[in-house]
Design a protein around this nucleic acid. Structure first.
Lengths: 187, 187
DNA sequence: ATCACTTTTTGCCAAATGGCAAACGGTTTC
DNA sequence: GAAACCGTTTGCCATTTGGCAAAAAGTGAT
């Protein structure tokens, strides 16, 4: 729980009262590998902060292939910026066993309505998240498969041996077998 | 000039006084194809709003290849969010002849200090820009060359016949000759 | 119209990556 | 330990894309 408060306070200050309010609304949730935190077509039920584990955002294309679009690591927030009630178009799946701190949408809104400056904090979080995502994904376009994998290892050093190769491959836009061969050549 | 005011007012309201302030600080700038609006290593001299033309954001990799990272179309703002004085790491080059409305950094800051709500408007603009960029770039990763080009045409329908094929190719992470062959096969 | 210049297309071949299926290796279950 | 299961690696070959250079097409100036 402190982890979440620390996280938020990187982006703005909170006093004791405010921290208490947040704590009073928080619920711990545990998910096993492969369970979904959000499913395409349904609105996000809760806002979640990843304390332990890794999630992936994925979808299915028209060939039925399962494509990973992004990874969400420890100390990151899962939510649908500005559209709390709109359905997701993708799945958010636990790529490992995960522990989260979560908030019901209603409580989250109450926090936002009560804490002055909360929205500004969220703004910063959203913006930082978008920027990071862009910086990680965009360069993949211009590089070949091997370079992509090297970039992945730079960007997500803690993930390499924690999640299935197939997730990484589809994140990088290459096939499993290609990635396997690349891995072999690297070390 | 109205174009810029209209643009801003999509994101928040301005009264007459505020509009006048903005207008009093605006300067029109024209750039010829290939001229730079910003250069790597230098801070952005002015904030610019594209009235006519297309810019591209590009850089040079270690092989000396010129890579296009993004296009900036009409009715978009060119600035360095939150870091007005930091040097750019990339070039912003006119891909066609361009007409801009620009503001000196100092004046831009004055606008921001004077107009209540300006920063919130900027926030929205920044966020929308980031989101759009991400939505356009990210899907390229997972698709083959032909699909990338089709997506490019969806995302930038007005650019296809206005800018050199080589810019589009490097934006898509493929070679000029590949793109040329793809084009041939499409129609 | 001609020339110089730039951009695009094409041809040829090499290299990278994909598709598919089988083999391999590790883990869990009985 | 055997069997079933899952993820990864490998082999084989097809397809896509790249690299390079020449040809063709387009543009602008004289």
């Amino acid at each position: 729980m402190e982890r979440f408060v620390d996280y938020v306070m990187q982006f703005g200050n909170l006093n004791k009262h405010q921290i208490n309010l947040i704590q009073s609304k928080a619920t711990e949730v545990n998910l096993r590998k492969d369970e979904y935190f959000a499913e395409a077509g349904k609105p996000l039920k809760r806002i979640g902060f990843v304390v332990e584990g890794v999630f992936r955002i994925c979808y299915y294309n028209n060939k039925g292939e399962d494509i990973t679009r992004y990874f969400i690591e420890e100390n990151h927030l899962i939510f649908n910026p500005h559209h709390p009630d709109e359905p997701f178009t993708e799945y958010i799946q636990a790529a490992t066993d995960c522990r989260l701190i979560t908030f019901a949408n209603r409580d989250w809104k109450e926090i936002s309505d009560t804490i002055v400056g909360w929205d500004a904090i969220l703004q910063k979080i959203i913006q930082k998240g978008l920027t990071q995502k862009l910086q990680r994904r965009s360069p993949l376009v211009e590089h070949d498969a091997k370079t992509r994998y090297l970039k992945f290892m730079e960007n997500f050093p803690t993930l390499v041996n924690r999640i299935p190769l197939s997730y990484i491959a589809s994140y990088l836009g290459i096939t499993q077998s290609s990635l396997s061969r690349i891995r072999k050549n690297i070390r």
